[in-house]
Simulated scan of single mutants.
Amino acid sequence: MNHWLVKSEPHKYSWDKFNEDGSTFWDGVRNYQARNNLRAMEKGDLVLFYHSNEGKEVVGIAKVVKEFYQDPTTEDPNWVVVDLAPLEKLKRAVTLEEIKKDSRLENIGLVKQGRLSVMQLKAEEFDRIVELGNGD
C-alpha cells in the first residue's frame, strides 16, 4: 500500500464538502509530477487531505477507490483523475507549522516541495501525521 497527500483550498473543495459528497474524482491537476503521482495511486491506498492556503493543515484521511482515468473536465489526454472517498476526520488538524517543527517529518514533500498538489508520503510520515492528529 502507498500513502499520499492531496491538497485542496477549503473555499474551493473542503473536507466537509468531501464528506457531504461521500466521494469525488480528484480533478484539476495540471502539474506533470502531480499527474504522475495520480497515475501511481492504487485502489486502497491511503491519502491525507490537506487544506492549502487557508488553514494549511491536514484535516482527514481518505482512500483511493478508483485508479486513474481521463480527467472528465478536459479533453486533453495528458490529464487524469482518481476517485477518493473520505475515511475519517482527524481528531484535530495538524498544521504545516507543526509538521515543519517535527524532526521525523523534516524531509516530507509538503515541506520540500510545498507547491506540489499531489505527493507520495513514506508510511512513517503518514503514520506520524495521523499520530499527531489523533493523539495516539
Rank of each mutant, 00 (worst) to 15 (best):
M1Q: 13
M1Y: 08
M1L: 09
M1C: 06
H3N: 13
W4M: 09
L5H: 02
L5E: 03
S8R: 07
H11R: 13
K12M: 10
Y13V: 05
W15D: 11
D16P: 02
D16V: 05
D16F: 00
K17F: 01
N19D: 08
E20G: 06
D21Q: 11
S23K: 15
S23G: 04
F25I: 14
D27P: 01
D27N: 14
N31P: 03
R35G: 12
R35F: 00
N36D: 11
N37S: 11
N37T: 11
N37M: 10
M41D: 08
E42F: 06
K43C: 11
K43S: 04
G44F: 07
L46K: 15
L46A: 10
F49G: 07
Y50R: 04
Y50S: 04
N53Q: 14
N53P: 02
N53I: 14
E54F: 06
E54H: 09
V59N: 01
V59H: 01
G60K: 01
G60P: 06
G60T: 03
I61C: 07
K63F: 07
V64I: 15
V65M: 10
E67T: 15
F68I: 00
F68N: 14
Y69G: 04
Y69R: 13
Q70L: 15
Q70S: 14
Q70E: 13
P72D: 13
T74C: 10
T74Y: 06
E75Y: 08
E75C: 00
E75S: 14
D76W: 00
P77L: 04
P77G: 00
N78F: 02
W79V: 08
V80P: 00
V80I: 05
V80N: 07
V82P: 02
L84R: 03
A85M: 08
A85Q: 09
A85T: 05
L87I: 12
L87N: 01
E88H: 04
K89R: 13
K89L: 00
R92K: 15
E98C: 01
K101I: 03
K101P: 02
D102P: 09
R104Y: 10
I108T: 14
G109L: 06
G109H: 06
G109C: 07
L110D: 03
K112I: 14
Q113M: 13
Q113H: 14
G114H: 11
G114I: 13
R115D: 10
R115S: 15
S117D: 02
S117T: 14
V118Q: 02
V118L: 12
L121Q: 11
E124P: 12
E125D: 13
R128S: 01
E131L: 11
E131I: 05
G133R: 06
D136H: 13
